[in-house]
Write a protein that binds this DNA or RNA. Structure first.
Lengths: 229, 229
DNA sequence: AATCCTGCTTGCGCCAGCGCAAAGACACAC
DNA sequence: GTGTGTCTTTGCGCTGGCGCAAGCAGGATT
């Protein structure tokens, strides 16, 4: 009987639903297992199913012709993706790949339609989650237009840190394999510039980094830098 | 009794509703009149009301510190804005200004909550409209990252043309006052670059332009250019 | 017709950051 | 331990496009 209707900002698909409903909804989907790097769905494919991550993480990216790629966002445990695309019966607007070993639940359109009809809170929560993402991408759109590249890298790193950071003795570890190329695709620059920037930050003691691994040693300095340049 | 339930892509808040419901919903709001350039709401203000344009046009833009501005989209007749922000009781993430003389209907949060509870189709339509906008801004985000500036100006002009174009003898007239600065804010560049680019296109016979006024003489050429550079 | 205001054009110099190239570092397999 | 492939670093040269400055254009006001 535990509900969370008092929360203002459900980031959760199941906010405001009874535990038993939640369990039933989860059971009505199929679980899918993805190995690291494996695509769950590809941009342009018909959106047959939507997903919720149980364990692991998905990387949503959008491809441009000639191989340029923008990372739209990461999807972690309890977060959903493609909900709207499948709801509307469209094509996936992005590609989703597993980052590390990932377990997801999948629902097809018919099931989703049925679930939404029976649980009005689901539609409400989808609206809320979508608003969140719309505002996020609009903000990043503005930043991409306005800010210098090092500032954008700082913001990207902080966003990923908030989403997938883990406290350690050295600082906050980005708890997913994150290459220089990934960070470049997330912040709108190139592999080379990210590498040079991280080197500079390492000299200042703000971060410590290795192969696909970054530890933010001084988050405060990074926040200041991301705000004022 | 005219319904449009057969349409797959409602861009309309009232898709799937009876005319009488539509009329009642419209009557439950307040009409607001905006003079050219007047702000309807400002980024950061508490989102008390949401809006639908009856006549005229709104410009949604997002401001960065030190005055840089990105135009997120234009909102024309029958289109809505701030629906999600008010639904969630947040602050407006953008600023809306009237372009030309504009008439809108406004609903406050209580009314919206009531309407959505009584008309499930409204929530569905909001989801669909929001998906549309999310995909649009994601696409533009990728383009901003990937494409050369002239290509982006071409895309921006074509998008505005599709939204607010009017056939004339000379070509397709952009039927709203559109300055070089506006086009720059929409395409992610500067006033100067837009001006230079339009001059070049004018020499090639693709457009004819004057003060806050653009006619696309050769849309096909512009489409080709926007796709291949 | 003169003035003003706002928007538009264009020459010019400058620089942030891109991307090649080449070398180094690390992870894993055999 | 040795190899192989991927990821990272860094020097270097180049350029797209930004933004100042100065002047032009055209609509509105007096």
């Amino acid at each position: 009987m535990t509900t969370h209707m008092d929360m203002d900002n459900p980031l959760d698909l199941f906010e405001g639903l009874e535990d038993q409903d939640k369990a039933a909804i989860l059971k009505s989907g199929h679980t899918v297992h993805c190995r690291p790097g494996q695509p769950l769905f590809n941009q342009g494919d018909p959106a047959k199913r939507c997903f919720m991550v149980i364990r692991g993480r998905l990387k949503l990216s959008k491809l441009h012709e000639q191989g340029k790629e923008a990372i739209i966002r990461y999807i972690g445990p309890d977060e959903t993706t493609a909900a709207l695309a499948v709801f509307k019966g469209r094509r996936y607007p992005v590609t989703a790949r597993a980052v590390g070993d990932t377990l997801v639940v999948a629902w097809d359109k018919a099931t989703m339609d049925h679930l939404i009809a029976n649980h009005p809170a689901l539609a409400r929560n989808l609206l809320h989650m979508t608003l969140e993402r719309l505002e996020d991408i609009q903000t990043r759109y503005l930043e991409l237009r306005t800010e210098m590249v090092e500032q954008r890298i700082a913001r990207a790193l902080l966003r990923i840190m908030q989403h997938a950071g883990r406290r350690t003795d050295d600082g906050i570890l980005i708890n997913l394999p994150l290459s220089r190329q990934d960070l470049a695709d997330y912040s709108g620059t190139t592999l080379y510039t990210v590498s040079r920037t991280l080197s500079a930050w390492e000299k200042r003691g703000w971060v410590r980094s290795g192969r696909e691994r970054i530890v933010v040693a001084d988050p405060h300095a990074l926040v200041l830098f991301s705000e004022k340049g």
